[in-house]
Design a protein around this nucleic acid. Sequence first.
DNA 1: CTCGATAACGTAACGTCACTAACCATCGCG
DNA 2: CGCGATGGTTAGTGACGTTACGTTATCGAG
Lengths: 212, 212
Amino acid sequence: MSPPGRSRSPRGQGEQLREEILEAAQSLLMETASEDAVSIRAVADAVGVTPPSIYRHFADKDRLLLEVCRLSFERFTDVLEDAFREDHDPRRRIEGMGRAYVRYAVDNPEHYRIMFMARFELTTQEYAEEMVTDGSSFDLLLRTADELVTAGLVRPELADRGALTIGMLFWANVHGLASLLVAKPGLPWPDRDRLIDDLVTAATRGILLDPR
Amino acid sequence: MSPPGRSRSPRGQGEQLREEILEAAQSLLMETASEDAVSIRAVADAVGVTPPSIYRHFADKDRLLLEVCRLSFERFTDVLEDAFREDHDPRRRIEGMGRAYVRYAVDNPEHYRIMFMARFELTTQEYAEEMVTDGSSFDLLLRTADELVTAGLVRPELADRGALTIGMLFWANVHGLASLLVAKPGLPWPDRDRLIDDLVTAATRGILLDPR
DNA sequence: CTCGATAACGTAACGTCACTAACCATCGCG
DNA sequence: CGCGATGGTTAGTGACGTTACGTTATCGAG
């Protein structure tokens, strides 16, 4: 049982195994569509290595999953950034981002789960800092919310709440639909695409002034 | 180590232990505020019984947690039912239920997690039937949504979507805020109560016609 | 060209987990 | 009194995360 199918990395190239571990963890998460299947042991022999070797590169399992989570965030942010750039009108921009948001969640349910439903035994501090950094998806949201506020498109009752509140309201809307679709696929859902459209327009109508 | 602090139940009263197990599991979930802490072993010696005895009353751990989940749903439904009865005007009714919804989630984060974020290895069929039964919270939502539709309070572009879509839109709103508050307490949240109010009014403004 | 430090792994093992098989004691009924 | 169902037990299996420690190969200094 000794030949572990993998030869040892040269001196400075220990990082290479780290990347392979991350990729294997990600693949396992996607293919099995189950977080439980991503065990240290399963990841280890997907890479062709013994379990303790994982700990050479990650402090514990939560840190490994957190890195997978971070990668998911990067791809998620890329998708949102595309939607961000696609339209420069703030209203259509927030709507496009909302649609892209829910669609990403539906298309990558396991990634969405690990980003927004998983429980990590980390300080909230650590986690918040990870998310609210510049260029993050959260930052994109806040910038768009700020555009809406300064453009005077927000309903008067909400205008003095600040971009943070406006952004959170939009986020709550799309996250609500996204996470329900991911967590409760067995419910009697109506037509999905139309529901997404309806939710996004309802959100803008509830938060912003009527168009024109 | 043999005296397990608990005497055997008489003939027909095996159900009594079942109740104690459920209560212990619930208490463990609340006190430790961690789903991992609810292990079969921990529950067993909280009740004063050996682990295999649990399996006399529950097929496996998922079934036990599902029963805890069902109890959470009952209490959740009670809270929503109170809000339902408190106001008979459909608009104020849906708003009150929305506020009660988010508040319950904030006050009972672990219950909310297990209801809407936990992953059970059950068929979606089983789960859907459990939720969409008569008198459930989902039923309350649909009834209120139907009231709104038949009362002609829904915006014209959404009126022909049916009560199901209208209900889902409201649900997505409150669930979005609730689950974000539960899952990401470390974020720079604005004032919570005002945010809840803002979300609920934004939801009604987005879905319903303007009041008056 | 050697040689010790160190990077990059492996081996063995611990404690805990969910779960099962097999056994035993008690109760109620005939 | 016996006998089967009921409500537990003891003992054990395999998988899990994690740790302590051993092993090997490479790099740079002398």
